[in-house]
Amino acid sequence: MKLKELAKSLELEQDEFLELVYLFVKTSSSDLNKLQSAIEEGDSQKVAGFAHSIKGAAVTLGFTEIFEYAKKMETNARVNDLNGATGVVKSIEDEIGRIAKRFHKEIKSKN
């Protein structure tokens, strides 16, 4: 879904929505880094915590793909299963990357 449409579905002004998306990309990227370190340390509890945090942020802005990935990771981490976690991080990263791209495109078109 395009960002414009997403903003509309959330009944937000576009500028306001873009500002929130910017914050989301920023905090989620930082959360992802911590998530990756937690996976490397094998700390399932931490992984579940960060996944939960990303999931929560995603649902408010309607980023359902990220929400689903993060939910899957949290579920697995809760039962100490970190197999494939790095792959999921990659998928979330890609999603955030796509959102960031769309965000820049919107900004450019505005200017």
């Binding site: 306001e16 500002e19 929130l20 914050l23 989301f24 920023k26 905090t27 945090s53 929560g56 942020a57 408010t60 802005l61």
Partner: peptide, 11 residues
């Protein structure tokens, strides 16, 4: 602690 929520609430 979530900056997205804070910003949204302020707006």
């Amino acid at each position: 602690n979530n900056p997205v929520i804070l910003k949204f609430m302020v707006h």
